[in-house]
Design a protein around this nucleic acid. Structure first.
Lengths: 333, 333
DNA sequence: CTGTTAGCGCTTTCAA
DNA sequence: TTGAAAGCGCTAACAG
């Protein structure tokens, strides 16, 4: 059922039908009603491809995320999708995995679908490869990176100040008497490296003991974290606080303490990262650094929408994380 | 940069360029190479809209989910997306929320984008409204519902036998001596109602005490569950086991026990549903009914792919859940 | 092996 | 206010 069929049924030319569909005002009221009626009766649907072909902007945005199983990433993606749908945009969400070849492939797909703008979610997009691909496929079109940044004129990065946040937490711990602090990190992503830099910064500026054994690089996995935390805490009984680069890893810390019969927070304080549902699910609930992912989604939307409207935006938008005190620390006094 | 420009640069007709792009074999090797070189140099990208217009199937599938924040749903969606991308399909993922109007709207969008097939994720799609909309916009096109079913010739439902599963767990509990079992449910979705029916079935066929106060309908929320579980367990001290319709609610049960100083599983057994990450994050880890969501995604993919290929598939595919014994029960003996 | 031609369904001038 | 015609970029059938 296309525009021609409708035109035939209504006894008008297909141009007129097109006008009715697009709400152009140069159609006689009577004709409009007659055509509209037939449109409704027939359950007519415009063909997006034909539309996309003849129109310039199809009000389409592309959202690309790396790790599909990352709750924050997919939530951010859906949040952006929801917001943009309010502006009449439809979104094209895809997960491209870690593979660089796949990544280029998806960027191509997005570009060939003529998306009007692009959102990349995850700090892993902050790399030279991606920079090149954006230049190749998206020069001129607005691109927003959630939790990352690339120095390109059409790119806006929304970044969490995670480095500062971790350093601040170290400050706080030290001010409450902690002298032996562990840091458990996955280390792979840019974001993870930032967090570690923050930890080092905190250790350095507070002149407390730097013990390289207190830093562990492990996979982002509960079981691995349980094992490694248990080793860490039993090897170094002096540790009174542990910061984890992800809540899910901190969960492993909590379980390790249960096994070692260490009381939380009396014997040891545990701090996670993300203020995720995991920090709530854990018993005790985990004190965590809130990097305000919801804010991230909102800020991405704002930035992209502004760029789409041709407005200039700050190339880097910062989000300031905040420590949320729950049951695995006792730092409020 | 379109096919014409490339043709001009290569000194061939655009039909030849099209052939090269589509890897047709009736092109001289030499010509192919020359054209390909120019294609690469110019960073040519085919226009999907034009393609979609002239080709029948654009290898596009639509994935619609209701609750975007539901981890299982989004995971299933992405899993399907990943699988289909291996077959050369791209997916169009969207979350339509609970609103029925929105739902129709999204179904329209999907239809007008000429998706070749549709996946609906969530038991909430099992309703008359959706049935009508599918009939209206997708008659003839393959549709798969994850965890739901609608009686339509082009629809295939993948359903978890949750009812049976819960009844089976009641059997097991009774056989281990439990006589006073609670059931905490959200009751809104079809899936939730199925679970409750299963509970009633189990209670009925085992001739144990039916106590209507042992069934609670609450929101799917940790804090609500903590409060309600605490009330429930302190009001009725005889309860020795509680089944929750979602792991996230079972987490509340675990926390309530901690507050009431009830030992798990010595004093009370807790059983969740989904075998989700929450059951792992919780301390102790929660015994849970695995409804095999990963399987769900895989089965959806299989069914849709088969239908897309014109094969007949069973209108209802069943998935048999399984109880995963963890730390909140002691039923293995 | 390659070029010509005719659409795919729609929007948008340009005339009438 | 309406209709006719061109064209968006591509694929595919048909000639050569």
């Amino acid at each position: 059922m296309n525009i021609y069929d409708i035109a035939k049924l209504a006894g008008v030319s297909y141009a007129t039908v097109s006008r009715v569909i697009n709400n152009k005002d140069d159609v006689k009221q009577e004709t409009r009603e007659r055509v509209q009626k037939i449109l409704d009766e027939q359950g007519y649907l415009p063909n997006s491809f034909a539309r996309g072909l003849s129109m310039s902007g199809m009000k389409l945005i592309g959202i690309l995320l790396i790790d599909v199983r990352n709750l924050h990433h997919s939530n951010t993606a859906f949040h952006i999708e929801t917001e943009f749908s309010k502006f009449g945009y439809t979104s094209f969400i895809a997960g491209c995995g870690l593979d660089n070849t796949k990544q280029e492939e998806y960027l191509r797909v997005m570009a060939s679908r003529n998306v009007d703008g692009l959102v990349l979610i995850g700090s892993r997009f902050q790399n030279e490869e991606t920079r090149k691909n954006i230049k190749k496929y998206f020069s001129g079109k607005p691109v927003v990176i959630a939790n990352g940044y690339l120095d390109l004129p059409n790119v806006c990065g929304i970044v969490d100040e995670e480095r500062k946040a971790v350093a601040g937490v170290v400050d706080l711990l030290v001010s409450r008497g902690h002298r032996n602090i562990a840091f458990i990190n996955d280390y792979v992503t840019f974001s993870a490296q930032e967090k570690e830099a923050g930890f080092m910064e905190g250790i350095g500026r507070n002149n407390i003991l730097y013990n390289e054994n207190n830093i562990r690089h492990i996979k982002t996995d509960i079981d691995v974290s349980v094992i490694e935390s248990e080793k860490l805490f039993s090897l170094n009984r002096e540790i009174t606080a542990a910061i984890y680069s992800e809540d899910i890893m901190a969960v492993g810390g909590v379980k390790a303490c249960a096994r070692l019969d260490l009381k939380i927070p009396a014997d040891i304080s545990i701090i996670g990262f993300n203020n995720s549902i995991y920090s709530e699910v854990s018993t005790p609930r985990i004190t965590t650094i809130d990097n305000k992912r919801y804010d991230l989604g909102a800020k991405c939307t704002d930035a992209l929408y502004a760029m789409l409207k041709g407005k200039k935006v700050e190339p880097v938008v910062k989000i300031v994380p905040e420590l949320i005190h729950k049951e695995t620390t006792d730092l409020l006094k």
